[in-house]
């Protein structure tokens, strides 16, 4: 992202660009206001909204759709960890683990805030927070009383989140600032997934590694399987990764080395049981 370059490019075809951006003072005020609240990554988005106003062009609907889709998933996650943290005294056994879940929950809440601001700045309307049922209509009845269930759902949410963002990356290519922000969220979800998997392993809840082996969830419930189907892929862009170029890369390692995307429809089907309205 190079704001300077963008302004210059516009100036080539529109010498009045600075006047169109309201006025220098208004621009500075906009930047300052957004900067305090949102800091670095959101400023380009704020800038995008200024350009939209200046030239009367709306941000592509698809980008806003993706942002609202991401917001829905972040509502789901942040609400989940908020309830987990509220029940932490009885739910989460150690201080170290309480802290880890707190860190993850804070990030998800920050993602909600960030996405809402980004959507508003781009001229859209953030979707309302749905009402959630974290038992998934009774599939996980003890989700906030049984730590094993809680971490199983957490792992599924994080691994699904990684796949969901990955599946939308190419829909964000028209807006490099939104794309970069989405990528910066995507890798945080992957860090969370890695950590939750390690916590499940440490508690002997599942034989999992920080990365996804084949399409294995390491979770007893088959309800989570759609979040892992397709992860067994070892063929990337027509290249077989298993034993590639004579290297000893096992099928497991070949599948682990690449996380796979999910489409919006696939993800919405996965989260549907958790959404009441």
């Amino acid at each position: 992202m190079n704001l300077y370059h963008i302004i210059q490019e516009i100036e080539k075809t529109d010498p009045e660009v600075y006047d169109r951006l309201d006025s220098r003072r208004a621009v500075m005020k906009n930047f300052a206001g957004f900067g305090k609240k949102l800091a670095a990554a959101a400023i380009p988005i704020a800038f995008g909204s200024m350009l939209n106003k200046a030239y009367g062009q709306g941000t592509a609907t698809s980008v806003l759709d993706v942002l609202n889709y991401a917001l829905t998933l972040e509502y789901l996650e942040s609400g989940f960890y908020a309830m987990g943290n509220a029940a932490a005294t009885t739910l989460i056994p150690t201080t170290e683990e309480k802290n880890a879940i707190k860190v993850i929950g804070d990030h998800e809440a920050e993602h909600v805030t960030f996405l809402k601001s980004a959507i508003t700045s781009a001229g859209g309307t953030p979707v309302k927070k749905p009402v959630f049922d974290y038992t998934a209509k009774g599939t996980f009845p003890d989700v906030f009383t049984n730590y094993q269930t809680f971490l199983a759902v957490a792992q599924t949410f994080e691994d699904t989140g990684v796949r969901a963002y990955k599946g939308q990356a190419s829909n964000l290519m028209s807006n490099s600032d939104v794309l970069t922000a989405a990528l910066n969220i995507h890798s945080v979800e992957a860090r969370h997934a890695s950590q939750v998997r390690q916590m499940r392993k440490a508690n002997n809840f599942g034989d999992v590694k920080p990365w996804i082996t084949l399409n294995q969830s390491g979770i007893a419930s088959t309800a989570v399987q759609p979040s892992y189907n397709g992860e067994e892929n070892t063929n990337q862009a027509g290249v077989q990764i298993k034993n590639i170029n004579g290297m000893k890369v096992s099928e497991n390692a070949a599948s682990e080395a690449f996380d796979e995307p999910l489409t919006m429809d696939q993800v919405l089907a996965i989260v549907k049981p958790f959404i009441v309205a």
Binding site: Y165, H186, V188, D259, E260
Partner: peptide
């Protein structure tokens, strides 16, 4: 994108 999330899993 398929690679970066694996790097992030390693990093964590």
């Amino acid at each position: 994108g398929k690679i970066v999330s694996v790097e992030a899993r390693h990093a964590a």
